[in-house]
Write a protein that binds this DNA or RNA. Structure first.
Ligand SMILES: [Mn+2]
Ligand SMILES: [Mn+2]
Ligand SMILES: [Zn+2]
Ligand SMILES: [Zn+2]
Lengths: 155, 155
DNA sequence: TCCCTTATTGATAATGGTTTTCATTATCAA
DNA sequence: TTGATAATGAAAACCATTATCAATAAGGGA
């Protein structure tokens, strides 16, 4: 396992898109890599402040916008009034592709990877058909199930 | 085909949930029934003003919140900074269940019903499995494909 | 290594969709 | 018809996100 200077994998992608490599961008990407939660911009802001106290919230938003545009990060709306961000894929694919169960009552979000194989297969077929019929270049997809989680239904 | 007083189908549901039947609610539901577009609160406000000039924007928001909670209306986020609303199902199912293609460039939204049969079948299976495993009562789902539409890619 | 161009940043104000407040009005059961 | 109370409109408040702008830092070239 490589032990060299860490987290170089995304630097090339940033530079390739004409962006500069900065401490803020490194630490934000770091925060997203280290968690399995669905962080809001403010969550990231607070987490990142420890290692980089001077950072501004605007930088968080600007960086996230870039990362989403580059396809490194997903931006989600789970219905709680703020956007949530999640790494698409880690350097060695530690983050698996998955879909979401969203509780409309407590806003809890459950990642699931069960049944993903069948879904992926169907999605591939559907994407191909839709791309052709609607002349639409599909980049990614969102599948979310909404309902009431176990915690909320027992009350 | 019945010809009696129109649009009574939702009145029972409103009352059943403890809500009163009002002119505003009727006309808002009417606007949603009459269109195949994905209306924002302001779109509805402007459309409804013609028939009900005194109505306030706050009433639109309050009514939509109720309709979403009752399951008569879907609330979507297509990434253009405002929520979009769409009738779940008309009185006689004029509105078919469908999914969406969303252009991340121009924000255009395409409804599609192709491939829906396979999707529905898979979703039913997936929902059953997820409900049991995660003790989650699934009420509905969202499937959206993101990408670049034909208009945007030719430029 | 130093310079220079310019992308990036932090602080702050502005924006704008949505929610809240509150006094007035309308619904509907009795 | 009446009374309890839900619903409404106008306006202000809220608050996540974006824009502004002067200061700073990245990095290609000398
Ligand atoms: Mn997730
Ligand atoms: Mn639609
Ligand atoms: Zn819950
Ligand atoms: Zn487009």
């Amino acid at each position: 396992m490589g032990r060299g200077r860490r987290d170089l994998w995304w630097q090339g992608r940033l530079r390739g898109c004409g962006y500069r490599v900065t401490a803020g961008r490194e630490i934000i990407l770091d925060a997203l890599t280290k968690t399995d939660k669905h962080l809001s911009a403010e969550d990231i802001y607070l987490a990142v402040r420890k290692a980089c106290p001077g950072i501004g919230l605007a930088t968080i938003y600007r960086t996230l916008e870039i990362l989403v545009e580059m396809g490194l990060v997903f931006k989600f709306d789970f219905g709680d009034g703020r956007a949530r961000y999640e790494l698409v894929e880690g350097p060695n694919k530690e983050v698996a592709h998955h879909h979401h169960l969203v509780c409309t009552n407590c806003k809890r979000v459950i990642d699931y990877t069960d049944f993903i194989e069948d879904e992926i297969e169907l999605l591939a077929k559907t994407e191909k058909g839709l791309s052709k019929k609607y002349n639409f270049d599909i980049k990614n997809h969102v599948i979310q199930f909404y309902g009431i989680c176990g915690n909320c239904s027992t009350k």
